[in-house]
Amino acid sequence: MASDKVITFTDDNFDTSVLQAGTPVLVDFWAEWCGPCRALGPTIDALAGDYAGRVSVGKLNVDENPGVTVKYMVRGIPTVMLFKGGQVVEQIVGVADKAEFKKALDKHL
C-alpha cells in the first residue's frame, strides 16, 4: 500500500499544498458516504506510489472542506482534478481505471 504517500488536503492547506506547489498536484474530491469514491481509493493510493516525487497526490473530503469544494464547483464525486501552476489542467469525473489517470498525468509531466 502506498497510502502513506497520499496527502490530506483541506480548506486551510489548499493554497500552500496545491495552488503554490512546485509539482503538479492530483486532488481526489471524496466523501465517506460515497461508494464509488471508496472504489476509487486504491487507484489513487497506487498513483501516489507510482508518481512519488513527480506529482503530489492527495484527497480532499468534501464534507469537511466546503470552501474548496464550492470554489471549484464540485457537485459530484468522485471528481479528480489535476492542478498545475495553480490551474486545473485535467479533470476526471467518476470512477476510472489507472491507465486513464496515467494518460492524463503523463501529458503534464
Binding site: 458516504w33 469514491c37 457537485r75 459530484g76 471528481t79
Partner: peptide, 17 residues
C-alpha cells in the same frame, strides 16, 4: 457539466444540493 451539477448517482451527489 458532469460533476458540476449533472449526475447519474443520487446517493453520491444528493448532498451537494
Amino acid at each position: 457539466l458532469m460533476g458540476h451539477g449533472v449526475s447519474t448517482c443520487a446517493t453520491c451527489d444528493g448532498f451537494f444540493f
